[in-house]
């Protein structure tokens, strides 16, 4: 399967967060999202990656919020580039509205793209570091922590590079009750793997 990655930055995307000129020679991993994809038993290669901040954002239309339009644009771009899967995550930064908007759009897009493109994704609550802390078992409820505390926690446990995160994923059981958003993401991966 050809996978199109979309996420906040280096942790999620690994070398796909780098510009093309540097990516070719990069020895970095493909990031947390693709590591989770592989760990869930899915096979494929990364076709393209896009940082959330690189999605062109214009005025929000009347029918959708800016977050929803960004996700919609990702789906169109992934399909047009010939990807089989759009694999995305977006930090909520504690914003429950953002999470709901993205989840609603995700459901809508899955229906409209149907067989054309598999869409797997989840708003990471409050950020992708919470998923890492949950997998490592360093805190019972990482989703209740602030982004700053989670970043500090991953640093303390030397889990603040994408390679360390990928290594952790490759040696972890993905099912966890410590992060609801990670559990939902993994559940989608499991369904796709069946």
């Amino acid at each position: 399967m050809k996978v199109y990655l979309a996420g906040e930055g280096e942790h999620e995307l690994g070398r796909w967060a780098q510009s093309v000129e540097y990516r070719e020679a990069s020895t970095r991993a493909d990031g947390v999202l693709f590591a989770l994809f592989r760990r869930a038993g899915l096979e494929g290669s990364v076709l393209a990656g896009k940082r959330w901040r690189d999605i062109r954002k214009y005025r929000a239309g009347g029918h959708a919020t800016a977050e929803q339009r960004a996700l919609h644009q990702l789906a169109i771009d992934a399909a047009e580039q010939g990807a089989d899967v759009l694999l995305w995550a977006r930090d909520t930064d504690g914003d429950s509205d953002r999470a709901k908007q993205l989840k609603d759009k995700h459901v809508e897009l899955k229906a409209s793209f149907d067989a054309e493109l598999e869409i797997i994704g989840e708003p990471a609550n409050p950020c992708i570091e919470a998923w890492i802390v949950a997998l490592a078992g360093h805190h019972p409820t990482p989703e209740s922590l602030s982004v700053q505390k989670l970043e500090a926690l991953t640093k303390t446990h030397q889990l603040d590079t994408e390679q360390a995160m990928v290594d952790l994923i490759n040696s972890s059981e993905l099912e966890t009750s410590r992060s609801r958003s990670l559990a939902d993401f993994v559940a989608q991966l499991r369904v796709a793997a069946e």
Binding site: R69, H72, A79, Q81, G82, E116, L117
Partner: peptide, 27 residues
């Protein structure tokens, strides 16, 4: 997903507008 002008800007290259005319996938 795009307003009309945004659609143009997003796919334009200012040369032949080729990205506007092609998709690699089946979309």
């Amino acid at each position: 997903a795009y307003a009309l002008g945004e659609l143009w800007l997003n796919y334009a290259d200012g040369i032949a507008e080729a990205p506007l005319f092609k998709t690699n996938g089946a979309a």
